[in-house]
Design a protein around this nucleic acid. Structure first.
Lengths: 119, 119
DNA sequence: CAAATATACATAAGAATATTATGTATATGC
DNA sequence: GCATATACATAATATTCTTATGTATATTTG
């Protein structure tokens, strides 16, 4: 289920966890498929999360106690909701802060104009 | 030669090529060690490029015709200068444009205020 | 002047994170 | 009825980086 992402995959690498934590931090609970669709929608299909990357990450976050799960039956199908724990909320803030700082550093390094559209 | 980088390495992943191409695009020629020092200096040691990552990348870029090399003897030591080819200059522009666009997308996705300091 | 640190290259083993492919199954639109 | 969408999962592979190691010369400092 690969739909030509706009960016060379290198760039997206490493941002997935930050994206997932951010979305969960503002929506109480979300299920995997929902996350992929939300990201696709918000980025106009520029970033497309693959299942092979997302599900293992979610499982890892659960094992770390960052998220808890709740399985709901939708008709005969199963849906697995993820929500942040208290630890998860802190982790989300840390990750967002780190990313913002990283972007500042990259702006300086690459000499991009902060502010307006970088494009 | 690992000097605790400020960011979790995940984030830096994928940006190395962009950084190197950017530096080479504004300095005619640079050698590997010089690149590591310049990045350290410009980022206040927040981003530290390791040799194990840099040298293989430079070799790859040369193999792709993105850079050409010039070996200079400094005393009894060898220094290998890298400079962008014409193809390399275009590649650098593409990479920078892509990265700027990626940052915009991430700003929207993560709901960070564009403009001022993201921190 | 000896030892530590800095300069300068290179590569190999291993870890982390993603892609691609595959599998299973139900639901919906045409 | 068939294609597409929803919804999960995992395994094989690829990519990119860290860590470690190796070689060698130059400079600083106690």
């Amino acid at each position: 289920m690969y739909i030509c992402p706009m960016y060379s995959s290198e760039l997206i690498k490493g941002t997935l966890k930050t994206i997932v934590l951010k979305l969960l931090s503002e929506t109480e609970k979300m299920y995997g498929y929902e996350i992929t669709q939300k990201v696709k929608e918000l980025t106009d299909s520029k970033i497309v999360i693959t299942e092979g990357a997302l599900y293992p990450l979610l499982h890892q976050l659960e094992a770390e106690g960052v998220v808890t799960t709740e399985t709901v039956n939708i008709g005969k199908r199963v849906r697995k909701y993820y929500s942040l724990t208290q630890t998860g909320n802190e982790r989300a803030k840390e990750k967002l802060y780190e990313f913002a700082d990283f972007m500042n550093t990259m702006n300086i390094l690459l000499d991009l104009k902060p502010g307006v559209n970088y494009v």
